[in-house]
Design a protein around this nucleic acid. Structure first.
Lengths: 216, 216
DNA sequence: ACGCTTATCGGGTGTTCACCCGATACCTCG
DNA sequence: CGAGGTATCGGGTGAACACCCGATAAGCGT
């Protein structure tokens, strides 16, 4: 039986190391890479084509949902298992919409992680019980702001917005995304118009409100 | 040599299991209990009198800082090693004030956790480099209780900061406060230097973090 | 009386932002 | 095919920002 090749992404090194230690207990799991943000995760997936990406949602640079969306599009054979602090309905709904193979809460047990990883590796899906419960019962899509609001933006615009809210200048964003400063400015102008928010402070508050970034 | 007896407290089971897996690699560490919140941690300390409590700050029921304070008072032989997501100055200052033996960031490496645990077990203290840097630079008064958070700003600076975070330009602020634009700019420069935050986005996140403004 | 902090105001310089105009290229949907 | 959305890049303009330098004045504690 071939080992399950896994890429792990979490911005907190200690948490990442801990989960890695748990995964290494499963003798059919092979760790092929670790990433500290969504962009690194994307690069590792492109390079190693793992079976599974186990990825936190809340990450700087490029968050887990956005990274998951792209991974699912670009490398459909790699299955994404998302980790999250909260059973936030907006997140769950969006995670399912973009083709994540599983959604595990951070208060899951090691045994549950075991089950989730192997289920996803077999091509099945896994949802933490609390999450599954919401899907079965609730069935009510977001309703609130969160994901719905963000849907008004294109993926590129969301990405730019996150980087702005994290304090990057247009020049820094251009460098990180390997774009022209002009392109970044255009995206910023477009998303400002679409959100009808016309200053940096407002963008930051909006990004925090919808959970794109944290106040830290 | 007696083993180092450790109680671990973190509200996220998966994170807790991961860190436990890391600790169990150290053959001189003996796990004597796990807690999901501060109150459980307190009970476990009373019951087992461990050498060390490794505890997250952000926990429900009773947070890590409050739990650390009581543990230090009631069981002074048990040393508290705090875990935190952020090098939040408010937290660091309070942690030091209540007698925590160490403060480790969650983006520390497993090797750093090793060093921290053994240092604290020997009766020494440990601070993550980023935290130590703040102490050395005098940004956090060791053992101080008054000069935390917003208290480091003058009333005028807090007023300006709030208006900035609410999306006002310097000109708008000057008009509202009946000041010269130059005066407003000076205040902004001063408070940026004092907070060591050098962009609008960072100021907005800070203002939200300390409750000066809300994301809405 | 002296030093320190706070608060006020100014000149100047370079960078970044916000918005105006333009363009090309790709993809999808009808 | 054509229309619309997305993504990319460019010129140009004026406002705002970030940081450098300077100053005056009031208050407060030693």
């Amino acid at each position: 039986m071939d080992p399950i090749r896994v890429v792990l992404a979490d911005d907190h090194t200690l948490v990442r190391s801990g989960i890695r230690a748990l995964l290494e207990r499963f003798d059919d799991v092979e760790m092929v890479g670790e990433a500290a943000n969504g962009r690194e995760a994307l690069e590792l997936v492109e390079k190693h084509r793992p079976d599974i990406v186990l990825m936190d949602i809340a990450m700087p640079e490029l968050n887990g949902l956005e990274a998951a969306r792209r991974i699912h599009q670009l490398f459909p054979t790699t299955r994404v298992l998302l980790l999250s602090m909260y059973d936030n309905e907006e997140y769950v709904a969006e995670a399912l919409a973009i083709g994540a193979a599983g959604y595990v809460l951070k208060d899951a047990s090691a045994a549950e992680l075991d089950i989730a990883v192997h289920a996803v590796a077999r091509g099945e899906s896994y949802l933490s019980p609390a999450v599954a419960k919401r899907i079965v019962e609730g069935q009510v899509p977001p309703g609130g702001e969160g994901a719905v609001g963000l849907q008004r933006l294109t993926p590129r615009q969301r990405e730019i917005l996150q980087l702005i809210a994290e304090g990057n200048s247009s020049k820094e964003i251009a460098r990180k995304l390997e774009l022209s400063v002009k392109t970044v400015e255009t995206h910023r102008t477009q998303l400002m118009e679409r959100l009808d928010i016309h200053d940096i402070a407002g963008l930051v508050r909006y990004a925090i409100r919808v959970g794109l970034v944290k106040p830290e």
